[in-house]
Nucleic acid binder design. Structure first.
Lengths: 167, 167
DNA sequence: TTTAACTTTCAAATAATTTTGAAAGTTTAA
DNA sequence: TTAAACTTTCAAAATTATTTGAAAGTTAAA
């Protein structure tokens, strides 16, 4: 396999995989392209490489910047904007974990807490509902805590220790 | 808030959240319904509660059984089939982690290994590609190992220890 | 300023996914 | 057996998500 083929395979795999972390195909592919590119790319470059429209490129680049994993860079002497991605996989996963917690886990935890707090009227249906939603709340809360700690900057030492321990 | 409202809120939240672990709305809602129901439900019950068609119920119940988190149960004296979900959240997350690893992580790791093994021709583009896809491979591999260990039955003690440690 | 280069927005078009419902298939009671 | 009760399948319909492209908006060189 040579570079071009490998590149295409990587980008397309990353694209279909986007759903694993909740983003669409074009967005994941733009990220993949930037991730393996040795230098920043312009919107033009991205449109051409992925055969997508200008609007698509623009919107998804903004989405990636909102996720905090793609940045604008200024290339001296160039009028247009260039983009580059977070290249450090540790920082990348930290950022993704942080955003997923904020966007998905935390709102869910809030609702679980809410619904599990209904008054117990003594019926089987209510008892089961409270028991199960409480259990789910505790699970989500623990998962959120672990996720945030494991990927947090300050506690990075623990991650390394853990990884070694678990390997 | 009373039971009916709380139930609806839980089921609908779980539905939109399905994407977090890669399943569709109806599937997630069926799971939510079974998860809080004190007794097994028939396909009829599910269709009625969620206002979905027979075909939809049938296909998604099968999907949930494929994930290993919903089971058929036999209710004595009843002709039709009844369904119940995994009620233990620990077992539930273990099962989901196991399936996601098998369905998504492992195939990805395989491709990352493949594409990162292209021959280094010395160009900047190739060097960057190999470096970045290798880093991604290592990350995915570590994540897979951790995930599997953390949720594995045999090593359950470590989970508890860890959770305490990190809290 | 003016204007050309560039970026964003968003309604409409396209594509992908999900849902329906009825026919085909299966099971079990009589 | 037969037939009623029940489940599955799958093509077509409905819904949802994504993408396009051109007009509007912005920026900066001249």
């Amino acid at each position: 396999m040579e570079l071009q083929e490998a590149k295409e395979k990587f980008i397309s795999t990353w694209g279909t995989l986007g759903s694993l972390w909740g983003i669409n195909k074009a967005m994941a592919q733009i990220h993949a392209l930037l991730f393996i590119s040795p230098n920043p790319l312009s919107m033009e470059d991205i449109m051409e490489a992925l055969e997508i429209s200008r609007g698509n490129a623009s919107m998804n680049l903004r989405g990636l910047m909102d996720w905090g994993i793609v940045y604008k860079v200024n290339v001296p002497g160039e009028r247009k904007e260039f983009f580059t991605s977070e290249k450090d996989v540790t920082e990348l996963s930290r950022q993704i974990a942080k955003e997923r917690s904020r966007r998905e886990l935390q709102p869910t935890i809030k609702i679980l807490k809410e619904v599990s707090s209904i008054e117990d009227d003594g019926t089987a249906a209510t008892k089961e509902f409270i028991k199960q939603t409480k259990a789910m709340h505790d699970l989500a809360d623990t998962a959120d805590t672990m996720m945030n700690r494991i990927v947090s900057q300050e506690q990075n030492w623990i991650t390394k220790t853990l990884v070694k321990f678990l390997k």
